[in-house]
């Protein structure tokens, strides 16, 4: 049955299996990478307000404001099977109601080939730092960590926490003036 169609079929099937094999090999070459890097994080003055959250329940919740410094060199994480890094700066803290709160206050996408050396000074947060309730006032143990989600061309999607974190506290009084 050496028709034109069966030849086409064979070529197509062979191409597909070769591509699948190569993709898998590409994944294997980077499967055991650690993707780690040191990160420096610092913060400026933090203030907290108690204002209604009109994007949600309209009840008064704690809203934190903080400026941060951050330096990290992530260029060594990139290789031929890293399409992009998704960076996110997480504030992690404990409150009376919740044993664990995690709020992403800043994120950034770095595609391969783009600048992967971070240097931020007194940077504002990208997202509002809303607490669920009133747990930010006087909270003296808020930890900032930078993590990244490695997006490969093909393969697993590891979530890596950067080496280095920063703790800061919120004041015991609500701030009432405008920013």
């Amino acid at each position: 049955m050496n028709t034109f169609l069966s030849r086409l079929n064979t070529i197509f099937a062979f191409t597909l299996s070769v591509m699948a094999g190569l993709t898998f090999c590409c994944f294997l070459t980077t499967a055991f990478n650690e993707h780690k890097a040191p990160v420096y994080i610092g913060t400026g003055k933090a203030i907290v307000k108690n204002v209604p959250d009109y994007s949600a329940t309209r009840e008064k919740n704690d809203l934190g404001f903080v400026v941060f410094d951050m330096q990290a060199d992530l260029s060594r994480i990139f290789n031929w099977n890293v399409k992009q890094l998704f960076l996110y700066l997480t504030a992690e803290y404990e409150t009376k109601d919740h044993v664990l709160n995690q709020v992403v206050i800043w994120d950034k996408i770095i595609k391969r080939g783009e600048n992967s050396v971070l240097d931020y000074r007194s940077s504002n947060t990208k997202y509002y730092f809303w607490d669920y309730g009133n747990g930010l006032k006087g909270n003296n143990n808020v930890t900032l960590t930078l993590s990244w989600n490695v997006i490969p061309n093909a393969g697993t999607l590891p979530k890596i926490r950067g080496e280095g974190s920063h703790k800061f506290k919120f004041p015991n009084e609500y701030s009432t003036n405008r920013l």
Partner: peptide, 21 residues
């Protein structure tokens, strides 16, 4: 979508918010 916020109680009950990149 990606998880943006997590609030977890001590009994393990968790509320979270997501956002597309």
């Amino acid at each position: 979508h990606r998880v943006l916020k997590v609030h977890e109680k001590d009994d393990g009950h968790v509320r979270f918010l997501t956002k597309g990149d």
